[in-house]
């Protein structure tokens, strides 16, 4: 297992290998995202039963929840990639971290926007200082910081390193931010607003949600791979294999 991991690591470190192998993954990811999105959305929007409390407006969770989950795990992935770059100086990791940042930020923004749209019918207002909304907003700010830093310096290498360090500092901070916001929130808000917390969900509602979560991960992987391939071509443009590729 360890040997296998080591070999995988060395392979992932090779841009050429990644470029070639990822070409084979793309069609699968496209199919998975497309089929998953169609199934999940049709099922979730048309067939899943309406919520007894919120009626049809709850259906926005099929976008909102996957986006929110992904925004958080994308941040973790970005930080891990950054750490790999800082420790082992694997350039691929830096490119992946750079590619994840704007995608993760977009999902974070989607989660915030859908949250606001959901809030209007449910809470009667676009924005409340709900613990979840607030900590997602902070996450978005952290994404912005990392993205700004990743392109701030003259040397690309320095920018990537700086971005990675900030991402790692953020990883330590996210739980603290989350905890403090939740703590603060319980002091200020009456607990009745916590409609998002459902102890149990009807399987008929849950299945499309799970499908949508998997689909979103697949779509995210697809986006990251496509962007990373672009990065690879740009950085390796002077290498023989890229030149040969371009001449074909």
């Amino acid at each position: 297992m360890w040997q296998w991991l080591k070999r995988l690591y060395h392979r992932l470190g090779s841009p050429k290998w990644f470029y070639e192998i990822s070409a084979r993954w793309i069609p699968w990811l496209v199919v998975l995202s497309a089929v998953g999105a169609v199934t999940g959305i049709v099922w979730g929007l048309a067939y899943a039963p309406a919520d007894y409390l919120q009626g049809n407006s709850f259906r926005i969770i099929y976008i909102h929840v996957p986006a929110a989950i992904l925004a958080q795990s994308a941040y973790m992935m970005m930080a891990v990639a950054g750490a790999i770059y800082l420790i082992w100086r694997m350039k691929m990791a830096a490119w992946v971290a750079k590619c994840i940042a704007p995608i993760g930020a977009s999902f974070c923004l989607i989660a915030l926007l859908t949250g606001a749209i959901w809030g209007k019918p449910t809470w009667g207002t676009w924005w409340v200082w709900d613990a979840r909304l607030t900590s997602m907003l902070m996450l978005l700010f952290l994404y912005f910081g990392v993205m700004a830093l990743q392109q701030a310096m003259e040397s690309e290498d320095s920018s990537f390193r700086a971005g990675a360090i900030l991402a790692l500092v953020g990883v330590v901070n996210i739980p603290i931010i989350k905890y403090s916001v939740e703590w603060w929130n319980t002091l200020h808000q009456p607990a009745t607003l916590k409609l998002t917390e459902k102890p149990s969900m009807d399987p008929a509602m849950l299945w499309p949600l799970l499908i949508m979560i998997v689909t979103t991960y697949a779509f995210f992987a697809l986006l990251v791979i496509l962007r990373t391939r672009n990065e690879i071509l740009w950085h390796e443009r002077k290498r023989q294999w890229v030149r040969e590729l371009l001449e074909k």
Partner: peptide, 30 residues
């Protein structure tokens, strides 16, 4: 940390605020 990260960036003062403010939230809250 933010100051060290942005020390070599021209006009890094504004960037510094962007990076650091979210990290300050827990201190502010408590």
């Amino acid at each position: 940390v933010g100051a060290a990260l942005t020390a070599g960036v021209r006009g890094g003062g504004l960037l510094l605020s962007l990076l650091i403010l979210p990290l300050y939230i827990p201190v502010l809250i408590f």
